[in-house]
Design a protein around this nucleic acid. Structure first.
Lengths: 198, 198
DNA sequence: CTCGCGCATTATCCTAGGATAAGAAAGCAG
DNA sequence: CTGCTTTCTTATCCTAGGATAATGCGCGAG
């Protein structure tokens, strides 16, 4: 049986980071469920418990929270090769505080929280993989917190462009504004300044 | 040989979270180096690589970054039972972007990055322990990012009081202001409002 | 082709919180 | 007790970025 492209994306991703044999991956694959999402389709609705971790093999998703006044705040973009979920809800099975939707037609592989203990036992290398993943996520968030404490709107935008060059070309700017914690109008203003300044 | 109180704090902390035998802890203890810090003493100076993870057994430390204009931004408070370090620098041995100092006379246990591979190999349960630790840190930072995107100064302060009730009684308010990303004057203003409002 | 809508831009006006300055209170070293 | 230093507060003035509103435009659906 041929390996669908989706699986091989994840296989390459994992094998680049931890020692995982082809056989083990083949077994592990049994825990994955592929899912196609069309643009704007929700993967997770705030209020529901988050039962799955999603690995994006094609397209781009985002997670966002909604304030009482209906303002959206983008927490994460997830293009190909990224995991996305509400980690807190996934870990605790409490109702999630964020929603996740697709910004483009996308393909994901789902990993159920219910299978995690089994997976850690059968393939101990996943303890390491997820430790490394969590470490790098933690570092990225730390940097984001620091940016939010110390940078102006313009600096945050410049920093975002440098850090995620692919994303800015790909997603509408009002999502980037909502990620940076500014209004779309403000982002437009910032962009004009930098255009004039150089 | 009697177990100094410092070690037993960490032992209890670990055994509450992962299965770790007394014997294994006794072995693990060999990798720990106790250190006393007096108030205001630096544990890590920005620019140096962060070689150790510190577990606080007594007192309270903080990590902070410094802007080019000399503004301090508090990234984390670490009272008893918390780990503190510049994780990025600790992982990569790049120069750290933050400093860590003691807010009170404190006691810490140091764990060298250089020993980590050995520790993960000798005591695989530490893979799990640090995965869990990173997960919970990630969740806490996620919440902080969300707060910084969606809350006013006053809301952030109220939230901080609820989340870390011990800290606010213990550390000077200008540090809390610097953690929340506002000026001490602004925090004072916020506190007066809530005092008048109730 | 064209209607409608999502998206970006620009202008005007406004407000939360920053900058600055000046005390007041509280702790502590001598 | 007495002078420092650290912390917190209050007042005034100012600015980055929010709110609102209007315009333009590109594109997908019919």
């Amino acid at each position: 049986m041929a390996l669908p492209a989706a699986y091989s994306v994840l296989k390459a991703h994992l094998q680049a980071r931890v020692p995982l044999s082809d056989d083990d991956f083949a077994d592990f694959q049994g825990y994955l469920r592929p899912l196609a999402l069309s643009k704007r389709q929700l993967l997770l609705q705030a209020g529901e418990p988050c039962t799955h971790l999603a690995f994006v093999t094609q397209g781009c998703l985002r997670s966002y929270s909604l304030t009482a006044q209906g303002q959206e705040h983008t927490l994460q973009f997830a293009p190909e090769d990224w995991w996305i979920s509400d980690i807190y809800s996934w870990l605790t099975q409490q109702p999630s505080s964020m929603s996740i939707d697709a910004l483009e037609d996308s393909q994901v592989l789902l990993l159920a929280q219910a299978d995690m203990e089994t997976i850690y036992t059968r393939f101990p290398v996943f303890e390491r993989y997820f430790r490394l993943l969590m470490q790098s996520r933690y570092v990225a968030l730390q940097e984001r917190v620091n940016a939010s404490l110390s940078q102006t709107a313009s600096e945050k935008y410049q920093h975002f462009l440098r850090k995620y060059p692919g994303i800015a070309q790909r997603v509408p700017q009002h999502f980037i504004a909502s990620y940076l914690g500014i209004t779309p109008e403000s982002l437009s203003r910032v962009r004009r300044q930098t255009r004039l300044g150089r």
